[in-house]
Amino acid sequence: MSKPIRVLVAKPGLDGHDRGAKVVARALRDAGMEVIYTGLRQTPEQIANAAIQEDVDCVACSILSGAHSTLLPRVKELLKEKGGDDILFIGGGVIPADDIPYLKEKGCAEVFTPGTPTTVTIDFIKANVKK
């Protein structure tokens, strides 16, 4: 039997809206993944450190405050620095379509916006984690 996929669900920045993060975390868990939720107000450093320490296969950042273009690239940079470049890095939240190409250029494998069924996120993670 293969090892379950480990996912860190993270809330970077000062944003307190975590309904989406918690719903996704529970859906991933119900899909058989091992999920760690960071809680609110995490700096990019804290998220990258947790990802390395917990040896996760995927980091999923949720952000609704508009700070995505600053914070998501920084998390990815730090993951790279700490030897976690192969960790699948995805984002979600209230993120305008115009900003998505930039985030992808900076290493976000995919960005999930409001209305995305959790099954789409689950399938994406299953198809794209390095195993």
């Binding site: 920045g13 944003d15 307190g16 405050s65 508009g66 700070a67 273009s69 600053t70």
Partner: peptide, 18 residues
């Protein structure tokens, strides 16, 4: 904005991007 709501000045490192 969130820094104001959580008591940080705009030049605090935690306010970056917010």
């Amino acid at each position: 904005d969130l820094p104001t709501q959580i008591g940080y000045d705009s030049d605090d490192s935690l306010s970056e991007g917010e």
